[in-house]
Nucleic acid binder design. Structure first.
Lengths: 225, 225
DNA sequence: TAAAACCATGTAAAATCTGTGAAAACTTTT
DNA sequence: AAAAGTTTTCACAGATTTTACATGGTTTTA
């Protein structure tokens, strides 16, 4: 099992180190950013950050702003660190979708407990396996079965199919696919998608037809005729 | 961007004014009703009310009843105002599809925050689909159905039809259509529109007649005869 | 009512896009 | 370091869409 990534954002390196130490001990992988801008960049460059811990007070871009920017694209859980309890702006946080506040100073146990609670809560909602039209995608096992028959997919193919299934019925532009399945900073040829779609379709046999071409637009995964 | 309409229902005019003031400050458009009957009538007369704020205790028809009547036809978000927290009937509310409770007295900020949170939440889930005269345009799926029957449209045709439907009843000059459906830097033949209109009409069968020619001016989408 | 202005339609050319195969560039495994 | 596998690029053919244009019909205007 791969370790869960947490991004810690604080301008004080001592604080970052402190938080990091606690989390690393609890077997999380910790990334650090020392200001809001760096945090946002890092979040979108990395694709699999499971939780953010944000200091409210930071130069350049404060925690609220980071929260806003990230919430435009992601529902990743966010914990806010506040110096005093009156720095907590519950109202603003509510609007922005903050999951939890922790006031400094905090005990290591509290921090880890909250992090684990939130991850447990959110992971429950996340589906581990998707099923549609005889296609079963097991994200944990990284395996796909079609009518009970396991098929071999490369990583990209797997991710692409997952993305399609997660967005079944939704018309997806190539650009959108690129931004979601490929890394945010990938600037290659959009035709790459076509090639992967071709392979996916062929590996999926007759169920490959579920991946529909929308001319001049992109693709759409849909089960009905 | 047009302002979002909220209907506030309470028998006390002071309370209505209070709520209204807060919401207007946050740039909502506020309609008022002073009892349940009026609220229901108003809701169905107005077509585009985005949210209801209902007092539970009202003469004639209480908040629960209003909720029931409206829920038969609409999924519009509903916030209930309760005098005391024990007036909240969570169970009943759950059945009726109440989205949120706010107990009086409440702070203006909380009210506005909840309203905005709910609108954000529901707008996300809301399908981007337009419906008129048996024509359903699902922008997400990039699909058009006529009387439940899916029809194939090219991208331009799809966009053109969407534009027409979004501007139903409005006479649209060719220039305007060109500027909105085509890129603003398109300098081709305006006759191109005619061709697309022709195709659209034919693909839409008898409903093609909804696209009306306005002589010497352009086109108009309109459902009635 | 005739002329002028304008629209609908069919046809065909032009532009655009997709599917495919093959090869190049990378990664990972052996 | 070679082999095996994966991902990306590229180019071409075929398919589809978009556009232009000519013709004939319709509406307006004078």
């Amino acid at each position: 099992m791969e370790r869960v990534k947490i991004l810690v954002v604080d301008d004080e390196s001592r604080m970052r180190k402190l938080v990091k130490d606690f989390l690393v001990k609890s077997n999380f992988e910790v990334l650090e950013a020392e200001n809001g801008e760096e945090a946002v960049d890092m979040f979108f460059a990395q694709k699999d950050i499971a939780l953010l811990i944000l200091d409210v007070m930071m130069p350049k871009m404060d925690g609220w702003q980071v929260c806003r920017e990230i919430r435009q694209y992601s529902k990743v859980p966010i914990i806010m660190l506040t110096a005093k309890s009156d720095e907590r702006d519950e109202l603003l946080g509510f609007e922005l979708g903050v999951d939890e506040y922790i006031s400094k100073p905090f005990s290591p146990k509290i921090l880890v407990a909250r992090v684990e609670a939130i991850l447990r809560r959110t992971n429950q909602q996340e589906e581990v396996s998707l099923e549609i039209g005889g296609i079963v995608i097991d994200k944990t096992a990284h395996q796909v079965k079609i009518d009970g028959q396991s098929i071999d997919l490369s990583v990209k193919e797997f991710e692409l199919l997952s993305y399609f299934v997660e967005n079944k019925g939704v018309a997806l532009s190539r650009e959108k696919i690129l931004n979601n399945v490929w890394n945010y900073d990938y600037f290659g040829d959009a035709r790459t998608i076509d090639t992967h779609v071709k392979k996916l379709r062929s590996k999926m046999g007759e169920k490959g037809e579920y991946i529909k071409t929308i001319w001049g637009m992109g693709y759409k995964f849909e089960v009905q005729a």
